[in-house]
Structure formats: structure tokens, C-alpha cells
């Protein structure tokens, strides 16, 4: 979004340029996986699978 600000990275191990992080009150508190994976596709698939299996919901399988 073009926002720039100074933050502290004391709590990120081996920080690298290009890392994505969660920021809270001026401190990076954790590294996030690659931007793509912010969608966390695996996690959603697992959840949809769980929903389907529990209640045989067809709706969870429309994609």
C-alpha cells in the first residue's frame, strides 16, 4: 500500500529484507510466510475437508 514506517525487529530471528511481518505497536512480533501463502491454502483445504467429513456438506465442495 506504499506505507512506510520504522519498526523494531528485535524479536525476529535472522531477519531478511523482503520478509513479511506482523507489526504491533512499532515492533515486529512474528514473521509471516510468503505473501501467497497468506491465503493459507493448505489450512483452508484441511478445514473444508473437515467440514465435509463431519456433516457431508456438499456446499463445502463447490470449488
Amino acid at each position: 500500500m506504499g506505507m512506510r514506517r520504522k519498526i523494531r525487529i528485535d524479536f525476529i530471528e535472522n531477519p531478511r529484507v523482503g520478509d513479511y511481518v506482523i507489526v504491533h505497536a512499532g515492533f515486529a512480533i512474528e514473521r509471516l510466510p510468503e505473501k501467497q501463502a497468506l491465503e493459507d491454502l493448505e489450512s483452508w483445504e484441511e478445514l473444508e475437508e473437515a467440514i465435509y467429513q463431519e456433516y457431508g456438506m456438499q456446499a463445502a465442495r463447490t470449488e
Binding site: R8, D10, F11, H24, A25, G26, F27, I29
Partner: peptide, 10 residues
């Protein structure tokens, strides 16, 4: 706990 480490660091 989210804010405590940063407060200490500062």
C-alpha cells in the same frame, strides 16, 4: 503478552 516484549525492549 503481545505488547510486553516491545515495552521492555524500548
Amino acid at each position: 503478552e503481545t505488547t510486553a516484549p516491545g515495552t521492555a525492549a524500548a
